[in-house]
Design a protein around this nucleic acid. Structure first.
Lengths: 334, 334
DNA sequence: CTGAAAGCGCTTACAG
DNA sequence: CTGAAAGCGCTTACAG
């Protein structure tokens, strides 16, 4: 590899002068600068960042520990947002997938710390509590789409309570008074919070909460036996029947479109629907289009990185708002 | 930061001995090794990888230039596969999103080359031709899910022709003789190849190709005016009507489930469907489940990285097979 | 089995 | 405006 000395020899100057040109130091005669510049291009010289890092005692790298963020649909937007802000601050992100694997996680962390990362980001593909490895406390760190109850770390999560409220409010505004909720597994953080939002919306509309209107759409992976079909069946068996349903996620909603047909009910005609996630593969392709709450993935990624570059170290949990994506499923047309 | 010298002082030895312990050199007395080990833990010492890189003249890093691979659903599996193989070879991947942006791409490339990446991977989220930046030719490089007609680089892409063949064959095996194809925009590589596979399957079944059975489901982003609805309408207007349809992607298929209802046709009963992509958000949630061809994302990522670690430098295009994911949509039940 | 010297490619601080 | 010296934290090659 060609080094600063090779360039110096080629340009007939000292290597220190080359360093000045590379770093755009002002104190170089224009003529010398030009000559060095030409040599740099002639030899295709690139400064060795390892040498720079060693001398400067900083790496310019921020570690990004990803729990399936890059493989789950759209969660990659967290990474995208993080990369945007990092790049604005001339930092580069080093991304490692940890994929639930303890040993991998430890190896990844060791590797990142040996590379002297200046900060660490731990991001999950869904909103949940995570165990924070103790090494994370040795450098500035933030959590994205996850939180810890044992370690005090700044944490950026979606505001699932607000989303639950808004998804319900949209239906209340259309005059519905009997609104079902097909819930996620209650062990999921989002399930609890969205339910709370649903209840708050009802309360604000002065409608008594009826627990029979809340049914579970599925168990956690491989654990539950309840299905979306059972959930729909039990809602449809109620007297009076709900005239609208809040679906715990777009996948539920998609299934519900089909399941309701068996009761002679068409979404957007006899029954209204709202949902969560704004999966771009699902929501716009249903007809009528699915009205759903979009997760603030990009904003969480941006906010988390932004926080790292701010002086204040406030270790609280920030809840970022969902966006209401209004299509047609929450409206009824005859 | 604590260095090798600090550890040496703490352990009462020379820093060279510490280096030996860290690198597991055999020639160290057990007693000394233990003492040094304790000092390492006491001081929480971690070798500085920048110093190592400089001394060893290699970075252990492979650059991964991603064109939306981490943000598009499931394309992240390319990265996952790449990371698996890199990790098996004790290399680490440095991922940068380039997102169509020329300037970003140049910056990313410069950064990676200054970090002395030992190889480069350029990956696209869909199968297409890409412009290869000239700097890529200065280090070993591979293309994933994309190819170049001007530069000779090893390239790993999905075998869209085979997929088209298989998606059609599944329907032929069920006795269908009149099979529609709702095609992607023909400017897309996959559209051309899948059509070729469709035609080969028909030919092998000794069925004459009828161009009226091939309709376009959409134009490229913002360009075409043709919709899935028009495509379905024109297929349904044919005499005789097709009894089965190959859909260019799962999103088409999803829409087709709904659109066919207007003709009184239920997928899996009066009409059979196959498709491409195996979007896990869509295919299993349709009823009946969608039979579709799964893209070999993980395999492409793995194969591409594997190629970098092999001695031979064969610059040809490898086409990796799709998997047939059989659900129920290609079968008819009354 | 252990250590002193040299050098990887840079930058910082000081001279000229 | 330009240069020689020292040092960042390691490893390689050579002595003892």
């Amino acid at each position: 590899m060609v080094s600063i000395k090779d360039v110096a020899k080629h340009a007939g100057t000292s290597f220190k002068t080359v360093s000045r040109v590379v770093n755009k130091d002002p104190g170089v005669r224009e003529e010398t600068r030009l000559r060095v510049q030409q040599s740099i291009e002639a030899l295709n010289y690139r400064p060795n960042s390892a040498a720079r890092m060693m001398r400067n005692q900083k790496s310019g790298v921020i570690g990004f520990l990803s729990d399936e963020v890059v493989t789950q649909p759209y969660a990659g937007d967290i990474l995208l947002g993080a990369q945007q802000v990092a790049s604005e601050h001339d930092k580069i992100l080093m991304v490692v997938n940890i994929e639930h694997n303890r040993r991998h996680q430890q190896q990844a962390l060791d590797m990142l710390l040996e590379r002297r990362v200046e900060a660490l980001v731990l991001a999950s593909y869904f909103h949940r509590e995570m165990e924070v490895p103790p090494e994370m406390l040795t450098v500035p760190s933030v959590l994205v789409n996850c939180f810890s109850t044992v370690e005090q770390l700044p944490s950026f999560v979606p505001d699932d309570e607000q989303a639950g409220f808004d998804a319900t409010r949209l239906l209340l505004e259309q005059g519905h008074r009997c609104i079902g909720l097909i819930s996620l597994d209650p062990r999921i953080e989002a399930a609890r919070l969205r339910l709370a939002g649903y209840q708050r919306a009802l309360q604000q509309a002065e409608i008594a909460f009826d627990p029979r209107l809340v049914v579970q759409g599925e168990g956690l992976a491989g654990q539950g036996s309840c299905s979306t079909q059972e959930a729909v069946d039990s809602l449809m068996a109620l007297q009076p029947r709900p005239t609208a349903i809040v679906c715990g996620k777009d996948e539920f909603a998609m299934q519900v479109y089909f399941l309701l047909l068996r009761f002679g009910l068409r979404v957007g005609h006899e029954i209204a629907l709202t949902s969560f996630d704004n999966q771009r593969l699902i929501a716009p392709n249903l007809s009528p289009g699915l009205t759903t709450m979009a997760l603030p993935h990009l904003a969480m990624g941006r906010a988390a990185l932004g926080h790292l570059f701010k002086p204040q170290a406030d270790n609280s949990i920030r809840r970022l708002p969902f966006s209401v994506i209004e299509r047609e499923s929450h409206l009824l047309t005859s």
